[in-house]
């Protein structure tokens, strides 16, 4: 497949935004259980939510540029929420705004200090508006992760994607980059949660390395179902295309071929493996030792660049059966 920059930005930005929001809610739940110091409503939770919203908004803008024409966003995109019964893309188009709304409300609730307990569970857990919104948002975040990943994992013709590993990768990459960003955000604003978020970021990064490593291994040995024989229905071991029927390319040659050489693809894979898995773990460990305010930020930037490369590779490694029909110009 030919990687589209709109989709690369969309999936990496909202992934990091979702992960960051999950990190905020995790922090709140931990402090509720008295495992962490409670944090300031405005400078931590409200600002953190705003940062998550910026990422999600960036993703939304990228998505608009994935439409045939950006103007379709105003004239037609509403139709995209009508087919949620069958289409994961439609489900994502519902889940994304719903999640953004809950992040917004979560930030607003914290900003206005709406922390008076609404009720108390078993005389132990005081539940306030921010907690309710946080838990709702966390659930929606998981829903959005699944919807986004299933857009790819449900296309059975793209056998490289058609696997639960795709869903695991999307969730773990989002959590890893989001928690790294939470560590960077804490370090930047002088909040003493760098170690907490950094530890979780390392855990998610290592888990993501495992699932992604496994999917790279799986895709290296994949056996494609379709062959030139089934494509044209001729039983012969030697079939060659002599002409695809046109000279100057078509949608089918532009959308499904990335055109990069084997060397480029392998280099991109090496780059993302280093930038997504190795660099952030090393930098987060170093920042823990040195109490640096800058290293976690560098770690996030490196991981984010790596994730963009990862998403490019994700598209490039998927080979569509339609390519069998477009092998030779003529």
């Amino acid at each position: 497949m030919n990687p589209a920059f709109s989709v690369i930005f969309l999936t990496t930005l909202i992934g990091a935004g979702q992960g960051l929001f999950m990190a905020l809610v995790t922090g709140q739940v931990y402090s509720l259980a008295n495992l962490l110091e409670p944090q300031d409503n405005v400078s931590f939770y409200a600002m953190g939510s705003a940062l998550a919203l910026v990422l999600l908004g960036g993703g939304l803008i990228a998505a608009v540029f994935h439409l045939g024409k950006p103007s379709y966003f105003f004239t037609r995109a509403w139709r995209g929420i009508t087919q949620w019964r069958t289409s994961w893309l439609s489900r994502e188009l519902i889940a994304l705004p719903a999640f953004m709304l809950s992040v917004f409300l979560y930030g607003v609730a914290h900003y206005f200090d709406m922390t008076r307990p609404l009720f108390v569970i078993k005389d132990l857990v005081p539940v306030d508006a921010t907690l309710l919104l946080g838990v709702t948002g966390a659930v929606l975040s998981v829903v959005l992760f699944v919807c986004t990943a299933m857009i790819y994992a449900s296309v059975r013709f793209l056998q490289e994607w058609y696997s639960p590993l795709t869903v695991a990768n999307f969730i773990l990459f989002g959590l890893a980059s989001g928690f790294t960003l939470a560590a960077a955000f804490s370090a930047w604003s002088g909040i003493a949660l760098v170690g907490f978020f950094g530890t979780w970021a390392v855990i998610f990064t290592v888990l993501a390395a495992l699932t992604r490593g496994f999917s790279i291994y799986r895709n290296g040995r994949i056996k494609h179902k379709s062959t030139l024989q089934t494509a044209i229905g001729v039983r012969h071991t030697k079939i060659k295309q002599r002409s695809m029927g046109f000279m100057g390319g078509s949608f089918n040659t532009r959308e499904f071929f990335h055109g990069a050489g084997r060397g480029t693809v392998v280099s991109v894979r090496l780059f993302f493996v280093i930038m997504v898995f190795v660099v952030p773990v090393v930098l987060l460990a170093a920042s823990n030792a040195m109490q640096s305010a800058h290293l976690p930020i560098v770690a996030f930037v490196a991981q984010y660049l790596g994730l963009m490369a990862e998403r490019w590779y994700f598209f490039a490694e998927a080979r569509h059966p339609q390519n069998l029909y477009y092998q030779t110009v003529g």
């Binding site: 439409l67 024409k69 379709y72 037609r76 289409s87 296309v155 013709f157 379709s226 078509s250 949608f251």
Partner: peptide
């Protein structure tokens, strides 16, 4: 149609064109 191209990914025959 919003031109999202998703249907073209879901056709194994390469017959949809944007």
């Amino acid at each position: 149609c919003i031109g999202c191209k998703y249907c073209s990914w879901a056709c194994p025959y390469g017959v949809r064109e944007l």
